[in-house]
Design a protein around this nucleic acid. Structure first.
Length: 627
RNA sequence: GCCCACAUAGCUCAGUAGGUAGAGCACACCCUUGGUAAGGGUGAGGUCACCGGUUCGAUCCCGGUUGUGGGCUCCA
């Protein structure tokens, strides 16, 4: 079949979960995956290819091999791939019968399983390939009588839906690179065999590849794990345990500032603050339903002498429900909004821990709103608007709101088994978001066990996706706690509950903020806001005097009284990303002034101390992003 | 939890065909008192992650443990 080169009229093709890339790039990457499979099977005759789709920035292929690949193996494979590409071989598509396909791949049980899938008309799951018609596969259910096709290039034939480049001359041999190998479960199922996945990077041109590598390097510089250590914000200690961060004084300031902000915003929005314990009896989580649905994410229980089991809390909701239930509630009490920066513990799998972004102890910007069904929409939108207010303060522009829905397969397993209520509440959320004109997309099988939610998705510096904040509907748990209110008509009714955490957890939110600001926090958040730098030691007393004045006005100031020269003190303050460096010499000391240097390098020259204080306070109080 | 890699001074990293280690920065002290991103000198600091094994001898080779990183699975 004659094929297209990289045309400008490139259509976009879907891959992965709702992602898209140009068709020509897709073909390029997909073809490289086949070339890699050829190279691997030549060099490692025992290797059985399984699936190998294009992905963001490149491609991968999973192999069943007796021994994992070493970095040296990757180098050999990459070299062999380059030879194959340079042979300028054609990619040829052929349709085959089921029996011929089975004969071709009889030595490869993985391919045979894929053929089974094709024959049964189940999604073949070869990794998000286009259908024969060339459109995107979004989900499941392909027609039963699927065509089975194979692609051959050079000496290698693979079961594949295509499409591919027509000839490897369309691939620039210097625009790809094997990145890493790792383990991956067959079909993503941890009960099935572990395969070895090789990731490759692939672009149209070597320049794009270099650009990508350069961007990655830059991203690593703002990685919160690196900056968090350099800026002395948090640390992990082997004797404390994995996923249990220790906040240094600078981190403590960030936390206190965020809590102060939350408190202010929540007071304005009609929340009341509560406090609840970190441990609780098993009974509470049995009632809430966490134990069946959530047990594997909880730390194992502590058993007391009387046999009573206590758990560390993974969530705050059941405690808040108890506070709701403490007395009879009237419709006049609703909506009732209970807020708490609660500390929760989740036993995340060890391999999942990731700096501050995924930890085992976390402080959550939690609140539960109990309301009637009529109040639901305005309460839900109120929360969404609170998010947006926060995001404006932080200058967060790159985020996506995701409506996370249940999946039918998960009902009774991951999700409370009540489909009509799922559909109803999902629709309530959808309507609220549309009425509020808030853009969002929908994702199946991402809900909480008790209801649908709106998640705010962000990306870490190195590109990993996380839920930063969440706003969840809970239709399942209030009845379990027998939560009720007396309505106007005197009837007892069950309230709806909204769980919300606009600032997520301190851990993830601060991890995100570190990367978002590359460590250069806005003034109101900066752990040290102003560093006083004397030009000579004789200015130290004056510095200390100014420091006292600034602190008295609520400005976090310090004096650098170390042995360095002024230049080096500036350099150190700069590398700690301290917003203001206040340089003081004879002139300033005499004029009751400070010479203000910004961390941007801008020099504001000398100004009276009072003027500096006024400026800083105004910027702090307005949560300004400028200095 | 699974696969692989890595673990040397507070940090960034050298190093040894197996003979108990080194630099820069940071830190301490001395000289210098300097006007907007590194002044000079001296010094202290390491059970080479931990536990075993091989060896006359292990930081180095082997096994295990712990931790971290990249993925897989999973979530704020």
């Amino acid at each position: 079949m004659s094929q297209v080169a990289h045309t400008s009229s490139d259509e976009m093709i879907a891959y992965g979960k709702g992602k898209r890339m140009p068709l020509s790039l897709y073909k390029l990457r997909h073809s490289l995956a086949h070339v890699m499979a050829q190279a691997v099977t030549e060099l490692f005759p025992d290797a059985k290819p399984t699936i190998g789709p294009p992905v963001e920035n490149g491609f991968y292929y999973d192999f069943h091999v007796p021994k994992p690949f070493t970095p040296e193996d990757l180098a050999r494979i990459e070299a062999r791939m380059r030879e194959i590409v340079n042979k300028h071989v054609d990619f040829v598509r052929r349709e085959v019968s089921e029996s011929e396909a089975r004969e071709l791949f009889k030595a490869n049980p993985f391919k045979l399983e894929l053929i089974d899938g094709l024959v049964q008309g189940v999604a073949d799951d070869m990794g998000d390939k286009p259908t024969d018609a060339g459109q995107a596969t979004v989900g499941d259910a392909r027609p039963a009588a699927s065509v089975i096709s194979v692609y051959t290039h050079d000496t290698f034939t693979d079961l594949c839906r295509g499409p591919h480049v027509s000839n490897t001359r369309e691939i620039n041999p210097d625009a790809f690179k094997l990145a890493q190998s790792s383990g991956a479960y067959w079909r993503g199922d941890e009960r099935r065999p572990m395969l070895q996945r090789i990731y490759g990077l692939a672009f149209y041109t070597p320049e794009e590849l270099q650009q990508y590598l350069h961007t990655q390097e830059e991203a690593r510089k703002r990685d919160h794990r690196k900056l968090g250590a350099e800026l002395e914000i948090f640390l992990f200690d082997d004797e404390v345990g994995p996923g249990l961060p220790l906040w240094q004084p600078n981190g403590g300031i960030l936390i206190e500032q965020l809590e102060a902000l939350a408190k202010k915003m929540e007071e304005e929005a009609g929340y009341e603050r509560v406090k609840t314990p970190h441990v609780t009896k098993e009974d509470l989580f049995l009632r809430s339903g966490h134990l069946p649905y959530y047990a594997e994410s909880m730390y194992p229980p502590m058993t007391l002498e009387d046999g009573q089991k206590y758990y560390l809390k993974p969530m705050n909701c059941p405690f808040h429900h108890k506070i709701y239930a403490a007395k009879p509630r009237s419709y006049r009490d609703l909506p009732l909004r209970l807020a708490e920066y609660g500390t929760c513990y989740r036993y995340e799998q060890s391999g999942e821990l990731f700096g501050l972004m995924r930890v085992r102890s976390m402080q959550m910007n939690d609140a539960h709103i109990y309301c009637t069904e009529e109040q639901f929409e305005s309460e839900f939108l109120g929360v969404v608007n609170l998010y947006l207010k926060y995001f404006r303060i932080f200058g967060i522009e790159k985020y996506v709101m995701r409506l996370s829905l249940h999946s039918d397969e998960g009902l009774g397993k991951k999700y409370v088994d009540n489909k009509p209520l799922w559909l109803k509440t999902e629709d309530m959320v959808r309507r609220a978001m549309r009425d509020g004109n808030v853009p969002f997309y929908e994702a199946e099988d991402e809900a909480a066990f008790y209801g649908p939610k709106i998640d705010v998705q962000i990306f870490s510096a190195i590109g990993r996706e996380f839920t930063l904040a969440t706003n969840q509907v809970d239709f399942a748990v209030p009845p379990r706690f027998n939560l009720t209110y007396t309505d106007k008509d005197g009837q007892e009714k069950t309230p709806l509950c909204l769980h919300r955490a606009p600032l997520g957890t301190h851990e993830r939110f601060i991890g995100f903020l570190i990367e978002h600001f590359a460590g250069a926090f806005p003034l109101w958040l900066a752990p040290i806001q102003a560093m006083l730098i004397p030009i000579a030691d004789r200015h130290l007393d004056y510095c200390r005097n100014v420091e006292r004045q600034l602190r008295a006005c609520g400005i976090r100031a310090r004096v650098d009284d170390g042995p360095d020269r002024m230049q080096n003190k500036i350099r150190k303050a700069q590398s700690m990303k301290i917003p203001y460096m206040l340089i003081v010499g004879d002139k300033e000391a005499q004029a009751d002034a400070v010479a203000v240097r910004l961390r941007t390098g801008e020099d504001l020259k000398a100004m009276p101390v009072g003027q500096f204080i006024a400026r800083a306070r105004q910027l702090i109080e307005s949560y300004a992003l400028t200095l």
